[in-house]
Amino acid sequence: MSLNARERHRTSDELGANLVISGLTTEELRQRLGFTTGQLDAAMAARTSDPAEVWLVRDYLESVIARRGATPFPYSVLTEDARRMAQIWFDLATPPPPEP
């Protein structure tokens, strides 16, 4: 599963919107996922060499947003239909539980 430039841009925008909705800072997200700054920057830009990291960020943000009773910004590329294929191609990890 490879994203073209337009899909990477949209995904990055959608991740950014959900970061805002989550109420987390970039540093909090980085720490909770155990990412380096470079890993998180690459995942948020959808330019990582490991697409599973982008999915992990997506899924963690969604879990935080749900825990807070908010509605996430919808994803146009990282959809549940796309997840089925991503699970075949990549070793998708389960995100850690959101902190209270």
Rank of each mutant, 00 (worst) to 15 (best):
V57F: 05
V77L: 07
E28D: 12
P72V: 04
Y60L: 04
R30L: 10
E7H: 13
P72A: 07
P51R: 10
L15G: 00
R32H: 10
E28Y: 01
T25E: 11
S22I: 11
Y60G: 03
E14F: 07
I21P: 06
M44N: 09
A46P: 08
L40V: 13
R32K: 11
E14M: 06
E80A: 11
G69S: 10
E14D: 11
L19G: 01
H9I: 10
A93N: 12
T94W: 04
D50P: 01
R32L: 02
L40C: 09
D50Q: 12
L33A: 09
R67G: 15
A86F: 06
E80R: 12
A46N: 05
F35L: 07
F35K: 09
L56F: 06
M44Y: 06
V64R: 08
F73Q: 04
G23E: 09
E14G: 05
L33C: 07
A82E: 15
R32M: 03
E62I: 12
P97W: 12
P51A: 11
L24C: 02
L19H: 01
G23K: 05
D41K: 14
H9S: 13
G34C: 04
D13L: 15
A45D: 12
E80H: 09
E99M: 04
Q39E: 14
H9W: 12
L3D: 08
F35E: 06
E80T: 15
T36K: 07
E7S: 15
P100Y: 03
D81Q: 09
G16I: 02
E80V: 11
L92N: 01
R68H: 13
D41I: 11
A52P: 07
L56R: 02
F90R: 01
A17M: 10
R67P: 00
P97L: 13
S2F: 06
A45E: 14
D13S: 09
G38A: 08
A43C: 05
A5K: 14
A45L: 13
F35T: 10
